[in-house]
Design a protein around this nucleic acid. Sequence first.
DNA 1: TATTGTTATACTCTATAACTATA
DNA 2: TATAGTTATAGAGTATAACAATA
Lengths: 143, 143
Amino acid sequence: MDEQRHDLGAMFVRLGQVMINAELPVLEAHDVEMWDYVILIALRDGPAQSQSRLAAATRRDKTRLIPILDRLEGQGLLRREPDPADRRNRIVDLTEPGRALVADCQGAIRRMEHELLAELPEADRVSFITQLERVSALLRVWG
Amino acid sequence: MDEQRHDLGAMFVRLGQVMINAELPVLEAHDVEMWDYVILIALRDGPAQSQSRLAAATRRDKTRLIPILDRLEGQGLLRREPDPADRRNRIVDLTEPGRALVADCQGAIRRMEHELLAELPEADRVSFITQLERVSALLRVWG
DNA sequence: TATTGTTATACTCTATAACTATA
DNA sequence: TATAGTTATAGAGTATAACAATA
């Protein structure tokens, strides 16, 4: 049996904290805050049809999202445009500089992850990530 | 390459949130709050030689620990006794009811985890947890 | 009436500083 | 002087309520 191990929750939470701590200096080097990165990543695969959908997708309160969008828009990293079909909505989309920045950040984070796990044989690293994705799907972690 | 996956930090954080959400009703059924459980678990393998060591072990501010200890002591789940060797220190130890409660809670959480991962073949579940522990050790997650 | 985006307010949680008692 | 435990205060982060514009 596996009685003498930590709870899964405790392990995931600690691993998450360690990885976030490892990401922060990488993001800081690109002048990006963690929540900026979360928003930019969420927009990478296409615009958000409204701010409230973006809030839901990033699990953030819609009121908390606003100052973040204000700043990112002010930095020219994204655009907010009224939806012609429903003028209450504002479509949020990355600009080209925003798209380039998020690609740079994620590339740097990938390299950091690779260094952190360098002691792990390549095959084990790949199978671990595969299993992580499998469990994430099983637990419906992304919605 | 593995470019199209989520960052490891994002995966761990989300998995942690999902597991915490799954633990909360289990703990609530035992009238235990999450931070109570963290403290009780930390004491399971032996008393803490001082409150500040317990704070460090649970990654909590020593000032935040105090109201939690007050409550748990009031519920008869733990004891605080002055260290005869250094009367500034208070040794924190589980009582028998505290020990029984934490065992009950962890048993219930183990069963919950098992149900959540029931779709995963037993061998995969075991190897996944083994890999989680290996990566946790590699990243020095527990100190 | 319901929803989006927004602002303002209240609340909770966390971090900091200060105090006492012991060493 | 330094540290453990404690208390009180300040700050950051989060949630709640209310408003104008649009549907």
